[in-house]
């Protein structure tokens, strides 16, 4: 074999284990559940293979599923918005700080490494009936009885924001850090106020980072089912909880497949729109 042919083959040999793993463990299974979603779970509990539209009819027309899908998208949207409002100024502070940026960033990334389930349940210690806040309010005499603050929509959003904020800050930071500070100085020297310089120069340049962070927050929030179980009430189930119910509790796997694909389609559409306008490179910058 010629040297060039070997050179050409080598990268494929290196890539093949990873590509094989992803094909067999992700792409083929995804295709499989597309097929599976047209099967039927019969009353006996066995699957009948074939081409039935029953699961899709149920998933798409039952208002129960539609309402929970809309509720999920609403929770994800609010979470993303709160992350942006909280995260942008913090990222701006780190990027423009004259102190040690690496330490400031590392400090913010620490919670990112702390277990998701621990961070989620830690809010029970703060907001629970005998949590920090109730104890403090009782002690100060503001209230005479502990208040139930947990297990509602707000605490679900709170838990999600706490989990996802580092993703937002990191992405915005990467974007802000790449902007030349002298651009803002140039704007002010030409007569713009600091605020004008920010709104007209820095903010537009940092939008790709904000969009990347927003996409990550939204997709991760919309796919969660642990946070609503730990911090939500009985009516706060999100779409992934339905998938879990169908697959693990009811063992209706064809219906569960259809529901999973519905979630994938909605979130996949968002990723595609993002990719069309901004490209995947920005997203990888923030992840790497």
């Amino acid at each position: 074999m010629s040297i060039e042919a070997r050179e050409r083959r080598q990268p494929w040999i290196l890539l093949s284990p990873a590509l094989t793993a992803i094909t067999l463990l992700l792409f083929v299974p995804l295709l499989f559940i597309v097929v599976y979603s047209f099967w039927l779970r019969t009353a006996t509990g066995a699957d009948q293979s074939g081409f039935f539209l029953d699961n899709w009819r149920e998933a798409l027309s039952d208002p129960f599923y539609r309402d929970i899908l809309l509720f999920t998208l609403k929770i994800a949207a609010i979470t993303t918005l709160v992350c942006a409002v909280m995260g942008y100024p913090a990222a701006y502070f780190i990027a423009r700080s004259r102190g040690n940026k690496a330490v400031l960033l590392l400090l913010l990334m620490l919670p990112f490494w702390i277990s998701y389930i621990i961070r989620t349940m830690s809010w029970i210690n703060i907001l629970g009936v005998s949590g920090a806040l109730n104890t403090l309010l009782l002690w100060a005499g503001v209230i005479s009885e502990p208040i139930q603050m947990l297990y509602n929509q707000t605490t679900v959003i709170l838990g999600l924001v706490h989990f996802l904020l580092p993703f937002m800050i990191l992405n915005v930071f990467v974007s802000l850090d790449g902007i030349d500070v002298s651009l803002e100085d140039a704007a002010t020297s030409l007569g713009a106020t600091r605020w004008q310089a920010f709104v007209q120069v820095t903010l537009p340049l940092s939008l790709p980072g904000l969009a990347a962070g927003g996409l990550l927050c939204f997709v991760l929030a919309a796919g969660t089912y642990i946070t609503p179980l730990v911090l939500g009430g009985p009516t706060d189930a999100m779409f992934a909880n339905l998938v879990y119910e169908a697959i693990i509790t009811q063992l209706n796997w064809p219906l569960g497949s259809a529901l999973s694909l519905m979630l994938l389609a909605v979130l996949g559409l968002l990723v595609m729109i993002y990719n069309r306008y901004l490209g995947m490179a920005q997203l990888m910058k923030g992840l790497g």
Binding site: I22, L26, V219, S260
Partner: peptide, 18 residues
Amino acid sequence: IAPILVPEVVLAVALLLF
């Protein structure tokens, strides 16, 4: 990087059922 882009619940269901 596709496994990051697919929601983990969906990935979990697909792999389990397949």
